[in-house]
Protein backbone atom coordinates (compact mmCIF):
# COMPACT_ATOMS: atom_id res chain seq x y z
CA UNK A 1 0.00 0.00 0.00
CA UNK A 2 2.66 2.40 1.10
CA UNK A 3 4.84 1.60 -1.89
CA UNK A 4 1.95 2.00 -4.30
CA UNK A 5 1.21 5.42 -2.89
CA UNK A 6 4.87 6.45 -3.16
CA UNK A 7 5.15 5.22 -6.75
CA UNK A 8 1.93 7.00 -7.67
CA UNK A 9 3.21 10.25 -6.14
CA UNK A 10 6.47 9.99 -8.06
CA UNK A 11 4.64 9.21 -11.29
CA UNK A 12 2.24 12.14 -10.88
CA UNK A 13 5.11 14.50 -10.09
CA UNK A 14 6.96 13.36 -13.22
CA UNK A 15 3.78 13.93 -15.21
CA UNK A 16 3.27 17.45 -13.86
CA UNK A 17 6.94 18.30 -14.44
CA UNK A 18 6.88 17.06 -18.02
CA UNK A 19 3.66 18.99 -18.67
CA UNK A 20 5.17 22.19 -17.24
CA UNK A 21 8.43 22.09 -19.19
CA UNK A 22 6.43 21.85 -22.41
CA UNK A 23 4.70 25.19 -21.67
CA UNK A 24 5.63 28.39 -23.47
CA UNK A 25 6.33 30.50 -20.43
CA UNK A 26 9.97 30.49 -19.24
CA UNK A 27 8.95 30.61 -15.57
CA UNK A 28 6.70 27.59 -16.01
CA UNK A 29 9.56 25.70 -17.64
CA UNK A 30 11.72 26.48 -14.62
CA UNK A 31 8.98 25.40 -12.20
CA UNK A 32 8.65 22.23 -14.25
CA UNK A 33 12.36 21.54 -13.86
CA UNK A 34 11.98 22.05 -10.10
CA UNK A 35 9.07 19.62 -9.93
CA UNK A 36 11.01 17.08 -11.99
CA UNK A 37 14.04 17.33 -9.72
CA UNK A 38 11.82 16.76 -6.69
CA UNK A 39 10.30 13.74 -8.39
CA UNK A 40 13.82 12.41 -8.88
CA UNK A 41 14.64 13.10 -5.23
CA UNK A 42 11.63 11.04 -4.17
CA UNK A 43 12.73 8.31 -6.55
CA UNK A 44 16.18 8.23 -4.96
CA UNK A 45 14.69 8.03 -1.47
CA UNK A 46 12.41 5.21 -2.59
CA UNK A 47 15.41 3.12 -3.65
CA UNK A 48 16.46 2.98 0.01
CA UNK A 49 14.95 0.71 2.61
CA UNK A 50 12.77 2.03 5.42
CA UNK A 51 11.41 -1.05 7.08
CA UNK A 52 14.45 -1.56 9.30
CA UNK A 53 14.57 -0.37 12.84
CA UNK A 54 18.29 -0.39 13.54
CA UNK A 55 20.65 2.46 12.90
CA UNK A 56 23.29 1.77 10.27
CA UNK A 57 26.37 2.31 12.41
CA UNK A 58 29.33 0.02 11.91
CA UNK A 59 30.98 -1.26 15.07
CA UNK A 60 34.19 -3.13 15.66
CA UNK A 61 32.59 -6.33 16.87
CA UNK A 62 30.79 -6.82 13.59
CA UNK A 63 27.32 -6.33 14.99
CA UNK A 64 27.37 -9.43 17.12
CA UNK A 65 27.10 -9.51 20.84
CA UNK A 66 26.39 -6.42 22.84
CA UNK A 67 25.87 -3.92 20.07
CA UNK A 68 22.73 -5.56 18.79
CA UNK A 69 21.22 -2.31 17.62
CA UNK A 70 23.98 -1.53 15.13
CA UNK A 71 24.89 -2.86 11.73
CA UNK A 72 27.91 -4.64 10.41
CA UNK A 73 29.74 -4.78 7.15
CA UNK A 74 29.16 -7.91 5.15
CA UNK A 75 32.04 -8.87 2.98
CA UNK A 76 30.77 -9.30 -0.57
CA UNK A 77 30.22 -12.89 -1.36
CA UNK A 78 28.51 -13.43 -4.66
CA UNK A 79 28.10 -17.16 -4.13
CA UNK A 80 25.92 -16.48 -1.09
CA UNK A 81 24.11 -13.72 -2.95
CA UNK A 82 25.37 -10.96 -0.68
CA UNK A 83 25.42 -7.79 -2.72
CA UNK A 84 24.95 -4.69 -0.65
CA UNK A 85 27.50 -3.57 1.89
CA UNK A 86 25.21 -3.52 4.89
CA UNK A 87 22.04 -5.38 4.02
CA UNK A 88 22.35 -9.11 3.71
CA UNK A 89 20.36 -10.30 0.73
CA UNK A 90 17.78 -12.92 1.40
CA UNK A 91 17.65 -11.97 5.04
CA UNK A 92 15.17 -9.85 6.86
CA UNK A 93 16.24 -6.25 6.49
CA UNK A 94 17.33 -4.89 9.82
CA UNK A 95 19.02 -1.68 8.89
CA UNK A 96 18.02 1.61 7.36
CA UNK A 97 20.04 2.43 4.25
CA UNK A 98 22.15 5.47 5.12
CA UNK A 99 23.40 6.26 1.64
CA UNK A 100 20.22 7.43 -0.08
CA UNK A 101 19.84 10.27 2.38
CA UNK A 102 23.32 11.52 1.57
CA UNK A 103 22.57 11.20 -2.15
CA UNK A 104 19.29 13.04 -1.97
CA UNK A 105 20.85 15.82 0.09
CA UNK A 106 23.54 16.31 -2.57
CA UNK A 107 20.91 16.28 -5.31
CA UNK A 108 18.79 18.87 -3.49
CA UNK A 109 21.77 21.21 -3.01
CA UNK A 110 22.76 20.92 -6.65
CA UNK A 111 19.22 21.55 -7.89
CA UNK A 112 19.04 24.58 -5.58
CA UNK A 113 22.15 26.06 -7.22
CA UNK A 114 21.03 25.39 -10.78
CA UNK A 115 17.52 26.70 -10.08
CA UNK A 116 18.91 29.90 -8.58
CA UNK A 117 21.12 30.39 -11.63
CA UNK A 118 18.37 29.71 -14.14
CA UNK A 119 15.94 32.06 -12.33
CA UNK A 120 18.47 34.90 -12.59
CA UNK A 121 18.96 33.98 -16.24
CA UNK A 122 15.19 34.17 -16.79
CA UNK A 123 15.15 37.62 -15.20
CA UNK A 124 17.95 38.79 -17.50
CA UNK A 125 16.15 37.32 -20.51
CA UNK A 126 13.05 39.23 -19.48
CA UNK A 127 15.17 42.41 -19.33
CA UNK A 128 16.75 41.80 -22.74
CA UNK A 129 13.76 40.50 -24.66
CA UNK A 130 10.90 42.16 -22.74
CA UNK A 131 8.97 38.91 -22.63
CA UNK A 132 8.98 35.52 -20.97
CA UNK A 133 7.44 33.79 -23.98
CA UNK A 134 9.80 31.04 -25.07
CA UNK A 135 8.76 31.42 -28.72
CA UNK A 136 10.40 34.84 -28.78
CA UNK A 137 13.74 33.28 -27.88
CA UNK A 138 14.81 32.46 -31.39
CA UNK A 139 17.34 34.98 -32.51
CA UNK A 140 19.79 32.10 -32.77
CA UNK A 141 18.69 29.36 -35.08
CA UNK A 142 20.06 26.07 -33.67
Amino acid sequence: MNNTLLSLTIAILFGIGTFLILRRDIVRVIIGLGVLSHAVNLLIVSTGVFSGTKVPIITDDGGHGAAEATGSIFTDSLSQGILAPIIEAGHHVDYVDPLVQALVLTAIVISLATTAFILILAYRIHEEYGTTDIRELRRLWG
Binding site: I26, L36, L43, I118, E128, R138
Partner: peptide
Protein backbone atom coordinates in the same frame (compact mmCIF):
# COMPACT_ATOMS: atom_id res chain seq x y z
CA UNK B 1 20.95 38.84 -25.35
CA UNK B 2 22.35 36.13 -27.63
CA UNK B 3 24.44 34.83 -24.75
CA UNK B 4 21.43 34.72 -22.44
CA UNK B 5 19.40 32.81 -25.00
CA UNK B 6 22.17 30.31 -25.72
CA UNK B 7 22.87 29.75 -22.02
CA UNK B 8 19.18 29.22 -21.32
CA UNK B 9 18.94 26.51 -23.97
CA UNK B 10 22.18 24.92 -22.74
CA UNK B 11 21.11 24.97 -19.11
CA UNK B 12 17.57 23.64 -19.62
CA UNK B 13 18.70 20.75 -21.84
CA UNK B 14 21.57 19.84 -19.53
CA UNK B 15 19.39 20.04 -16.41
CA UNK B 16 17.03 17.61 -18.10
CA UNK B 17 19.92 15.32 -18.93
CA UNK B 18 21.19 15.45 -15.35
CA UNK B 19 17.69 14.52 -14.15
CA UNK B 20 17.82 11.53 -16.50
CA UNK B 21 21.28 10.69 -15.16
CA UNK B 22 20.00 10.79 -11.56
CA UNK B 23 17.17 8.41 -12.48
Amino acid sequence: SDKMEATFKYLVLNMLSSIVMLI
